[in-house]
Nucleic acid binder design. Structure first.
Ligand SMILES: NC(=O)c1ccc[n+]([C@@H]2O[C@H](COP(=O)([O-])OP(=O)(O)OC[C@H]3O[C@@H](n4cnc5c(N)ncnc54)[C@H](O)[C@@H]3O)[C@@H](O)[C@H]2O)c1
Ligand SMILES: NC(=O)c1ccc[n+]([C@@H]2O[C@H](COP(=O)([O-])OP(=O)(O)OC[C@H]3O[C@@H](n4cnc5c(N)ncnc54)[C@H](O)[C@@H]3O)[C@@H](O)[C@H]2O)c1
Lengths: 208, 208
DNA sequence: GTGCATTTGTGAAAGATTTCACAATGACCA
DNA sequence: TGGTCATTGTGAAATCTTTCACAAATGCAC
């Protein structure tokens, strides 16, 4: 359906548009213009239309976009037409927050396993999901592959865990550890780096 | 010291370089070349040199950069020469993870207050920091201004909390709620949007 | 000292992304 | 039906970011 060379920034905005559209749907809005979507999404109407134009033509001139249809189209583009299996490595504070967050399941992401190296953590359960020992990781992922792995361990062991996952065929990783992971070209990695976010804020505070 | 028009992407990389340099320092390395820094930071040596060149000349030709000196220079550029006061709004799972994370204090960010609207949460304490009722927010921020506010409430109340903070003079916000916040031009906002990160991963999985 | 090996700093080129601006289209109304 | 209005879709222009490539330093060996 889609050709290559879609900018990362475009994909991020599409996800944002989808979040906005869900809000509009909840409000009972039937249609929305690129202008309104842009205002809500923090961009410009030209940007909205350009982003969508990479994938097709979804609006009606003079009218705007059907909220329902555009949501559906965006879900298709983003690959949200099915559910995804997520494994979490590290059952610490962030790991437990991820497991207990209902928003992921709502949006199509099922957390199907969580692993930790600390035997005191193993056996704990949140929302019915038991923490398993990380030594079971390889077998568990072979039996029931995960689409996405979230790395929530301390930084020192993150690369090692990623190497294991990659060897097991994992193609998408969300990393919270403050290290830059090295992976093959065909594996997608996103980093969530909170200290970095704080530092971009301090830079902004000092350069206004 | 610095002129305007530094790209956001450059600032983010500077923060990344700083993290790498701290690793090199811990390893006892004295100097580092742009090539090595680039390899560790996931970019190119030309990019490293260009990023630094916006702020001055920090290396020695033929030798590279002094790890110690470049760290120090980057800390200066990012405004890390002093400590920052952070207030957290929302004492849920993510809020408590932030408060208990020792990495922030280590890097110059002191979490000085945490607020919640739920009276059952008020009075709980992590690492000696007591949760206060959000009705005390205005008085607390007037008495002891915060440099940065982290929003960790449900999405529905996030904009309202931000409006209160902005009215109190807060100029930097880190938002975890899945809503696009509206703020005046002179307020810096960073969004941490985990569902969006998952969706960029599903897009990548489906467009290989 | 001279020459060699390295690596920086930086203009200029290439490439990517955003903004502009407007013709084309569809809805609605009289 | 034809006129008016709003709004899309999209090339072209403007702007922004990254990469290239090389002269200018610097240390080191001999
Ligand atoms: N909590 C925060 O606010 C915060 C902020 C910024 C960055 N981070 C980063 O996120 C990551 C997780 O943070 P956290 O606060 O949840 O830490 P945490 O210490 O609460 O949890 C880490 C968990 O990983 C487990 N672990 C260690 N080695 C393991 C291994 N080899 N395999 C599986 N599990 C292993 C530990 O037993 C622990 O339960 C860390 O890298 C941290 O630097 C956290
Ligand atoms: N936990 C996750 O993994 C995760 C993932 C993605 C996004 N988020 C987002 O991060 C935010 C926080 O998530 P969480 O898991 O910590 O939620 P949580 O429900 O554990 O905590 C939210 C806290 O905010 C408090 N609160 C509600 N209204 C408030 C107000 N007006 N002022 C102050 N506090 C108020 C609640 O009492 C609660 O303690 C949410 O917006 C959520 O959508 C969380």
């Amino acid at each position: 359906m889609t050709m290559r060379k879609i900018a990362e920034s475009t994909v991020r905005r599409l996800s944002l548009y989808l979040r906005c559209l869900e809000g509009f749907e909840a409000q009972g809005l039937e249609t929305v213009s690129s202008d309104v979507l842009a205002a809500r999404g923090g961009t410009t109407s030209a940007q909205v239309r350009k982003d969508l134009s990479f994938f097709g033509s979804f609006g009606k001139r003079g009218l705007g976009y059907s909220v329902r249809e555009l949501s559906s189209a965006l879900r298709g583009i983003l690959g949200l037409g099915r559910r995804y299996r997520v494994a979490v490595i590290g059952a610490g504070k962030i790991g437990s927050a991820l497991v207990q967050y209902p928003g992921f399941r709502q949006r199509g992401f099922d957390i199907v396993a969580i692993f930790d190296a600390d035997t005191r953590k193993v056996g704990e359960a949140w929302d019915g999901l038991r923490v398993r020992h990380v030594r079971e990781l390889d077998q568990a992922l072979r039996d029931q592959p995960a689409d996405i792995v979230a790395i929530v361990t301390p930084g020192e062991v993150a690369q090692g865990m990623v190497d294991r996952c990659v060897a097991l065929g994992v193609k998408a990783i969300l990393n919270f550890a403050p290290v830059q992971l090295q992976v093959p070209d065909d594996v997608a990695v996103k980093h969530v780096n909170l200290a970095l976010e704080f530092e971009t804020l301090t830079f902004a505070l000092n350069n206004r």
